[in-house]
Design a binder for these strands. Structure first.
Ligand SMILES: Nc1ccn([C@H]2C[C@H](O)[C@@H](COP(=O)(O)OP(=O)(O)OP(=O)(O)O)O2)c(=O)n1
Ligand SMILES: [Mg+2]
Ligand SMILES: [Mg+2]
Length: 303
DNA sequence: CATGGCCTGGAA
DNA sequence: TTCCAGGC
């Protein structure tokens, strides 16, 4: 009996926080910088209009200005020479407060994202079919080749066709997506911030799918689409494999994609990367920190 | 100085 | 407890 987990991540969060304070900059290319003296300051967040010009984090303010002459920089306030992030933290709490109404199991994962265990709420709402009209911002991994709506329709139709185990799990995701649309609408209504979400059966997959359609969209990752996705997904895209460990996996095992890991027996993974790490790799249990207040600790088989 | 500041989890 | 890896 699979859980339904949503990961909500705010879009260009610090930029949105500043734009809410100064709405005249909404819709314009913006970035947030700290310390203006050296090369125009370092950029820590970039709005989507500025990303379209090629501006990214890890760029100096002066470089960004070359790519995007109209860009507006919001400056992080400094207190005794240090950047003061208080207003962003407070804004993050506002979002958590809204999300907390939708589940008693919400896990703050960073300043701008949280995992929400929707399993219980989904159970209560399984009697109603998820309608595509209520999933206007939802994409389904593996079903969007001919367009978002076409894919959504054909997925919903096939999911509600039968009642075997996989159909039932997918129905849970569909209902989870419905709740997630409501959650994201509530966040926007009550805070003015836009966000994206991923809906899947565990935290790692929810986090992964959230990033597939950004900004202001949400993405469902059914189990049936995981193999296809993993078969071309670079190892470093999985949370916690973005650094040296991921690099060493690629080199020592001569693999490129996360799906290639299924070929290796547990003992080989453990010999190369240690007992604990090998086991985590095997189970793909690369969940971020899970704390006590979260029931979101669990295994899932395969992969 | 030249991303920086800050957070969490696991190993040492 | 401190240090390092990984991440926002
Ligand atoms: N190296 C980093 C990464 C992020 N942040 C801050 C600024 C971001 O606004 C916020 C959230 O980080 P995200 O990775 O979620 O990025 P954004 O929210 O800015 O953009 P996206 O729309 O891609 O989520 O954390 C930071 O200070 N330093
Ligand atoms: Mg974000
Ligand atoms: Mg984030």
């Amino acid at each position: 009996m699979e859980r339904v987990i949503a990961l909500v991540d705010m879009d260009c969060f610090y930029v949105q926080v500043e734009q809410r304070l100064q709405p005249e900059y909404k819709g314009k290319p913006c970035a947030v910088v700290q310390y203006k003296k050296w090369k125009g300051g370092s950029i820590i967040a970039v709005g989507y209009e500025a990303r379209a010009c090629g501006v990214n984090r890890n760029m100096w303010g002066d470089e960004a200005k070359k790519l995007c002459p109209d860009i507006h920089f919001f400056r992080v306030p400094e207190v005794r020479g240090k950047a003061d992030l208080t207003k962003f933290r407070d804004a993050g709490k506002e979002v958590i407060n809204v999300l907390s109404r939708f589940s008693n199991c919400v896990e703050r994962a960073s300043i701008d994202e949280a995992y929400i265990d929707l399993t219980e709420e989904v159970k209560r709402r399984m009697d109603k079919r998820a309608q595509k009209e209520l999933l206007q911002n939802t994409h389904i991994v593996g079903f969007d080749k001919e367009g978002r709506l076409e894919g959504l329709e054909s997925w919903l139709d096939s999911v509600y066709e039968g009642d075997d185990f996989n159909n039932i799990q997918d129905k849970k995701l569909a209902v989870g997506a419905l709740i997630s649309e409501e959650m994201r609408a509530a966040v926007y209504e009550e805070t003015g911030f836009r966000c994206s979400a991923g809906i899947a059966h565990n935290k790692m997959l929810a986090k992964l799918s959230c990033g597939i359609n950004k900004p202001n969209k949400q993405t469902v990752l059914p189990y049936g689409s995981v193999q296809g996705l993993f078969s071309t997904l670079p190892v470093r895209k999985i949370r916690n494999l973005g650094g040296k460990l991921g690099e060493s996996l690629v080199e020592e095992l001569n693999v490129e994609f996360i799906g290639d890991l299924v070929k290796f027996p547990l003992t080989e993974l453990q010999n190369n990367f240690g007992d604990k790490t090998g086991e985590q790799l095997m189970k793909s249990q690369w969940f971020p920190h899970h704390n006590e207040k979260s029931a979101d600790i669990g295994e899932y088989e395969e992969f």
